[in-house]
Design a protein around this nucleic acid. Sequence first.
DNA 1: CCGAAACTGTACCCGTGGTACAGCGCCGGC
DNA 2: GCCGGCGCTGTACCACGGGTACAGTTTCGG
Lengths: 217, 217
Amino acid sequence: MLERTDGVVLERAGRKRGETRERLLDLAERAVLEKGFAATSIDELIVAAGITKSGFFYHFRDKGELAKALLTRYLERDEVILDDLFDRAAELHEDPLHRFLIALKLFAEMLADLPGAHPGCLAASYCYQDTLFSQEIRDLNAAGVRAWRARFRGHLAEIAALHPPRIPVDLDVLADMAATLVEGGIMVSRVLRDGAILPKQILAYRDHIRLLFLREH
Amino acid sequence: MLERTDGVVLERAGRKRGETRERLLDLAERAVLEKGFAATSIDELIVAAGITKSGFFYHFRDKGELAKALLTRYLERDEVILDDLFDRAAELHEDPLHRFLIALKLFAEMLADLPGAHPGCLAASYCYQDTLFSQEIRDLNAAGVRAWRARFRGHLAEIAALHPPRIPVDLDVLADMAATLVEGGIMVSRVLRDGAILPKQILAYRDHIRLLFLREH
DNA sequence: CCGAAACTGTACCCGTGGTACAGCGCCGGC
DNA sequence: GCCGGCGCTGTACCACGGGTACAGTTTCGG
């Protein structure tokens, strides 16, 4: 909104454009992952952000718009992290199988290095409260999961073309297994308060890929 | 409470003991899985159950007691289903590996036969709203996940003793993988509105177990 | 110094969780 | 046949949170 027609983006000193909005999103994301969207009150957010209720409704038309902004930002960040991960892996090996195995190792390390455990997945949180949200938000969430499937399926197709699998596999199922283990791993890690579970599950997925496609051993 | 000291349980005709309470639990479970605990109002439950607010608070001291009763009942049913599954599998084969593979097949079939998709896991729902609940409830939830680990680890230990794994594996991780794929599979199935994803993930777990322990092929 | 962005302040409505009782109908036991 | 208690109903009331409405204020860049 502050971007002029010539593309120059205006910024402010004290109250920078989007600064308070981002702070609200940060606070909301943390709270939603802890207790869910319905239990996250606008009141607690504005107190923590140091603004008033009117200030909140200046940034978001209603709570639903906050929900949408939250998920959109989350999914965008997710994409960036995975892009970066697979880009780094691509630099380390030529073969798609080994690239994939390296990426999974990097992913597991990244998850293991998180301070404490993984804070939780917004997509999963929304999933268990989905009738609270508009169809648009549910569709956004579904698109996010489908993006994971497409990404992993792409890598797996490349792998399978060069390394025939030991047993017949459905690449979509194998691709979904990544998202499934991440979502499940976050949940189990959280419930058992053991941050190590999630990265270990990623490495178990890596073992499965190795057993399926790797001829050595 | 209606059980006398001699152990005889009293029942009533119209308003049978526990009947309304069970109805409330059924309604609450469905609602909680759809929109989360915080968004499930006592009011909607009593309207659906055909009682008054006072009636609700006769059965449950507060909403927290409802939450606890809900989870307890859910976890108990869970145990019964899995016990039955592994008992049936045990009747069909002697070898622990084949028993396990049969049980996973039965499990996948059971999940595939559910009308629509899996309605959701209460443990996962609670996990993403955990600061709403008492420590007692969080502990109950953790105990439930640990019970899954112990059950699967027990089977896997028997298997590993007879069938040395192709590569070194941590049996706890492999055991957790079951709960992880179930939780993640329910979530992904739900988000993509495709009930087939969950059973397929169970069969993918079965493939992983086969690749790890089965010598043939 | 103008205008717009980024708020504040006030007032008000409704739904929901929760408390506190008092009362009532029905059924089983004695 | 009546007493007691289970399983409710009815009424009244409170605080808090989401949400609406809208007028006014500060701050800063151009």
